[in-house]
């Protein structure tokens, strides 16, 4: 089973990269960009057929390694 997860900086944590990307886009003429926040995307292939169990595993991985819960949130966005 393939699980997709995204990790993003928590809402109130400064995202320096997102801020500078937004400024650069503005400079290129994309005037209506309000905000950009950057994150990481993971595809995790787990040897597990039960969707719930697989997602639970992935969640654990996010908690323990993929996301730094001090500054980041994660979300399981899909599984197939």
């Amino acid at each position: 089973m393939k699980i997709s997860a995204i990790v993003t900086l928590k809402k109130d944590v400064l995202d320096p990269q997102g801020k500078v990307v937004q400024q650069a886009l503005k400079g290129m003429g994309f005037d209506n960009v309000k905000e950009i926040r950057q994150g990481k995307y993971f595809e995790i292939d787990v040897d597990e057929n039960d969707k719930k169990k697989a997602e639970k595993k992935a969640e654990e991985m996010c908690k323990k390694l993929l996301a730094n819960l001090v500054i980041e949130d994660f979300k399981i966005i899909g599984s197939q």
Binding site: P16, V20, V21, A24
Partner: peptide, 15 residues
């Protein structure tokens, strides 16, 4: 340049 954000050199290449 641009903090190396996004990819190193990416935003400078659009200046």
């Amino acid at each position: 340049s641009y903090g190396d954000y996004l990819r190193c050199g990416s935003m400078a290449s659009k200046s």
